[in-house]
Design a protein around this nucleic acid. Sequence first.
DNA 1: AGGAGGCCCTGGGTGC
DNA 2: TGCACCCAGGGCCTCC
Length: 277
Amino acid sequence: MPELPEVETVRRSLEPILIGKKITQVEVNLPKLIKIPSGDANAFITTLTGSAFKDIRRRGKYLLFNMDNDWALVIHLRMTGRLLYVEKTAPIAKHTHFIFSLDDGNQLRFHDIRQFGLIYLVPSDQIDLISGLKTMGPEPLGTEFTLDCLKEAIKGKKKKAKVFILDQTCVAGIGNIYADEILFQAGIHPEETIDKLSEEKQNALWQAIKDRLKAGVEHRGSSIKDYVDGFGEAGTFQHQLKVYGKSGQACLNCGKQIEKIKVGGRSTAYCPECQKK
DNA sequence: AGGAGGCCCTGGGTGC
DNA sequence: TGCACCCAGGGCCTCC
């Protein structure tokens, strides 16, 4: 499940090889993934063909490819999306929905088993047309994400802690895996009401958000099931996980059994001893 | 405002 | 072996 560290790893893997490359041909096999212009493969193909990659940015879990014709190709990988840079002779894997042929003879392919991925093509100065980007909260690894910034976002909110950190308008880029890991490190119960946290816990949450995401990036993401970078390489952060996917196992910190509950409709693993309300 | 539920979708796992 | 069912989950939606 690509979250901030996985999306950032994809960005870093693709950036050096895509910048300056021109798209010579676009093949769309599943137009419904194009949200803007809605399902319009022809407009999508016409606009992108002949343009070159200028830069690749990331905002939350979105990848933004700025093209030299002032359009931006924006991609959200959701759960099973992959962006792969391959030779054009490589066999086409099942679930390959988009193929961008490049002027270096290789291809960038978008592959997505569950077809949940989202693709947008917007003028690069109008990325706010994408509602998820328009309302996106602060980048947790950026300088704007200060302790005061987090406290301000928390103020008056009655959401459960896990629901709060998964809310992209509160903090950008956190998904189910890192949410559980962050709350474990901060010693916060996932169902604790967020504005009931003590000063000390708010500080611990702030530190844990930055620390776990940074560690995820350093380990090139977590490859639980589907995630790989732009070259098909797996990450290694899955070996650092303390609670996600560990329900029934002993907590590495206290030995108590990790429990599994549902919070905000998401499966949640936590240690009842280390994460008390 | 928050919470619950549904929807999109495939494949892997389990139970009979 | 086959079939039914459940689960995984990000973002967006509706309804209460």
